[in-house]
Design a protein around this nucleic acid. Sequence first.
DNA 1: GCATATTTGTCCGTATGTATA
DNA 2: CTATACATACGGACAAATATG
Lengths: 243, 243
Amino acid sequence: MQVVGGAAEEGRDEDPDWLSNVAADVGLIDRSSTAERVADVLRRRITEGDLPPRTRLSEEQLTDVLHVSRNTLREAFRLLTHEGLLIHVLHRGVFVRELDEADLGDLYRLRQTIECGALRSLVDVDPARLRGMYDDVAASESAARRGDWVSVGTSNMRFHRDLVALADSPRTNEVAGRLLAELRLAFHGVASPRRLHEPYVARNRELLDLVAGGEYEKAAEGLEGYLEDSLTELLAAVRSRHT
Amino acid sequence: MQVVGGAAEEGRDEDPDWLSNVAADVGLIDRSSTAERVADVLRRRITEGDLPPRTRLSEEQLTDVLHVSRNTLREAFRLLTHEGLLIHVLHRGVFVRELDEADLGDLYRLRQTIECGALRSLVDVDPARLRGMYDDVAASESAARRGDWVSVGTSNMRFHRDLVALADSPRTNEVAGRLLAELRLAFHGVASPRRLHEPYVARNRELLDLVAGGEYEKAAEGLEGYLEDSLTELLAAVRSRHT
DNA sequence: GCATATTTGTCCGTATGTATA
DNA sequence: CTATACATACGGACAAATATG
């Protein structure tokens, strides 16, 4: 398919390790099946907002564009459906998911248990592991100064992903990743992304300082209120969009 | 396919609501696709222990037995792979997942945050909603008196599923369901299921009484220790099996 | 190490069933 | 009610990778 180009066209006897590493760095993951690469493309289009909620993904149309068979495409659909980005209506096809207010409430409640639970499970975090999160905060601050609120949102979400990752639990990471991906569905198409993201830049730094100081319980309590406020803002934003 | 038989053979103009309800009750859900029904069959075989971990699921073999095409079967594989019950090795096929000790530790840590988080989020649970859980406990006690430890394990897991369901969060339910399904992979093939399940029959009742009394925080704390003990037992059991 | 057989990965064409105009 | 469009499911085919001798 066109995305990976002629990477594995000619039958090299052995792909050296550095090759797959480079491919991973550039984002052209080659170790995966065609279906997963198709899913990667669609996931990006969705999370970047090119495919807004309620968009129908026609099998015929996409097989033409992506140059893959319907079977392969359907496998990609399955992947994304189970990530919550698509919904599958029997005999009607797949659509980009739209989140209603109940979904948002549910999403934030689970975020609260997952993220705060991750914080509370911490013991003696190596300060070196917080460097990435300080980078995330710095990226948010820089983007905020530029007024690039979409980028602020992106690095805020990366902050939360890295926060959960401190707990070193693969399954927790996976669940958190899915929640954050779903959340992006709600962020796109909001009238004022500034109100949605700006307040949390400073709060992220405060939170991170608490973690750096080993005050995990305090951090968890702070995060609880943080998420409640965030949900309130988000609900207000989507409500104003629908009127 | 043969599993659902001739449920919706003749084209009735309108299925009355009670009909689909009955179908759901009996477990012959007809609204699903063939792939999902195939996945249901395989899921049952796996969770019941008929297909032990490391078993390879041959496409050719299963298409013969289940009378479905390879494409349909592969869609079912995809579903179960994303539930964590199968692993998919590129160009080698799918295998029933085997959990190592790290998996078990990870699983229980996430269980702890999810289940205890669900308990802590409760406020004023309607006592009527606890009836199902009291039934679960009664079923465990009855099976324990019979010495049917596998059934004890089954109703214990149902207890935990219903416990999480009290929080009324669809996503939390889904995550908890997947965790419990994965857990069953580890339970089967254990030498002494009694040690694994018996101690928790009484503890389930204690826990439930705390919930009935509105002592959610106390229940959550109790559950933490409960799960730690359970993990210790489980690790000992799988270790003794591998020697 | 090599050649062969087996199995999976991918794609295509088609027939059937379902939803919507 | 009919017609159209589309998803569902099937079977066959070939390529690619793996396993086996």
